[in-house]
Each structure stands twice: as C-alpha cells, then as structure tokens.
Amino acid sequence: MLGRIAGRTEVYLAGVLIVLSVVLFILNPKFLTAENLFDVLRNNSFLGIVALGELVVLVSGGIDVSFTAIATVAQYVMGVIITKYMVESVFFAFLIPIPIGIALGAFNAFLVNRTRVHPVIITISNLNVFYGLLMVVSKGRWIYGFPGPFRDFARLKVLTLISEKGVDYGLSIFTVAWFFIAFATWVVLRYLPIGRKVYALGGNSEAARRAGFDIFRIQLFVYCYIGFLSGIAGFVHAALNQMIQPNAIVGRELDVLAAAILGGASVFGGAGSPLGVVLGVLFIAFIKNGLILMKASAYWHQVIMGLIIVLAATLSAYQQSLERKRRRWV
C-alpha cells in the first residue's frame, strides 16, 4: 500500500527530511518545537500551493513560469476591490482571485496549444505581459489597510496552543489549506480520468493523440489548474502579509520550480507526485529555517540552496545513467 502513495523519490526525500530534522534539532533544539514547525508551515503555504500547480503542469510535459504574475494580478484585483468597497466578507474576497487565475491560465493553454511553441517561451512572454500591464495600471502602488475580518481571518488557527511566554500559536488555516490542496491534487491525479490523462500526455504525447485524448482539454486543465491555485495562493499571500506589493511575488518562479523538481517532478514530463512536491517544499523550508535558527548569515542561504539543487540533480542524473547503461544503444 505504501508503494501506491509513495514512490522511491518520496521515500528518499522523507528519509532525508528526517535526518535533516534530527541534525537541526541537535544543533538547535528549538527547531523541533511545535511553535517553530507551525510557523514554518504557515510561512511556506504560498510556496507550497503554487508548487502543486507547477507539479501538474510539469507532469503533463509543460511548464509555467507566468504563475507569479497570475497570482499577483489576481491578488491585486482582489485588494483593489476589497479596500475600495470595504468588503466585509472574507469568503467573497476569496472568490475574487480564483476566476482571474483560471482565465489567465486558460489564455496560456490556448497559446501553448495553438502556437505549438515550447510553453516556457509562451509563459515567459505572458509573465511579461501580465506583470507589465499590472504595473502600468497599478503604477506599482501598494495596497494595505484591509477590512477587519480579513485581518482576523489570517490569524485563524485550526489548533491553538499557548506558548510559555503566553503567546498563542497553532496550526494556521493556510497550512491546512495547503495540505488539503495537496490531498485534492493527489486525488485528482491518481483517481480522476483527467489526472491520468495528464500523466499519459506527459509520458507520450503522440500516443495520447492516437488514443483519442483531447490534447487541448488536457492542456486547458493543467494551465487552468495552476491558474486556479495561483489565484488561491495570491489570496493566501495577501492575507499572510496583510498587504499587497505588486513586486513581491514575481521573481520567485525559479524557487517554485526548484521545489517541484527536488520533489521528484520531471522537467521532461510524466513523473512527479503531490507528496513529493510537499516534501520538496518542506525540505527547502527546513533548510532555510535551520539556517535562521543557527543564525547563519542570510547570504549563505542561497549558496546552500544552490548546492542542494545541484547535488540532487547530479544524483538523479547519475542514477538514470546507471539505468541507461544496462540498455545502451541496442
């Protein structure tokens, strides 16, 4: 049964995560306190949610680097509406960014399908278009001063504990949202026909076409799915920070890609799992958190992150070359 949910990559990653946690715990026992872990989970929920969207696109054999712009546009429109009309309903606010994300995702899918140009090119272009136009219209203004309910919502916890110092902490609603989305993505990818078609398309697009799959519908699904999650993530990001800066998210495309790839998603399509991507995000989050706890200079973070990506890629390439060697040319 375990093999059903977790492949080899996931088991390795989980092992590495446990070792990492133990090491960090020995270096600084504070790492394994509930307070710290809840904090890490909450702060990484934005990254975690969009990484799941990127996973679905990668599995289909595509790639999307425009999701940061989509999330920004979606949250900005939401911010403008809720501050201008002082929208009191958080639920209504939550509903604003989602259709925007889906619509922009559909635009990506349309262009990818019709032009048959590599999606990295299409989405780079759209990253420029979406973000550029937003900056022009918004003039880069920040939005803050959200209505009260919106502020309270961000502090919502599913589980609340009080620390020794009397500060309350707990499992944030956003962390729950992230894990719920991961679970939902797993169900979609594993048990819905559309999810299986996503894997099929990523595995062999020509065979998918011959099998009679509607390729455009699959592409529409994956790019709308990341658009949808970008919309949600835009909401989460705005709520976590209690303000919207148009330039806060754009530029993090490659971080998200790195998390998805570390989690076992293949840039060539056809492979990857939600569990792996959650573990990939956690891995990056733990490392960053550990460095902060160890009071390592912030400048070292990138050096170590870069090394980890290079190392992981080298290991997986080495593993593949071993497998190839058995077959060679014949």
Partner: peptide
C-alpha cells in the same frame, strides 16, 4: 504501430 504508442511512465494495466 511499430513504435507501439504506449505510455512508458504508466503501469501495464493502465
């Protein structure tokens, strides 16, 4: 077909 048109990343059953 000569190239079989299979999905290499999926299981036999699938």
């Amino acid at each position: 077909h000569q190239d079989l048109s299979l999905f290499p990343n999926l299981s036999v059953a699938e």
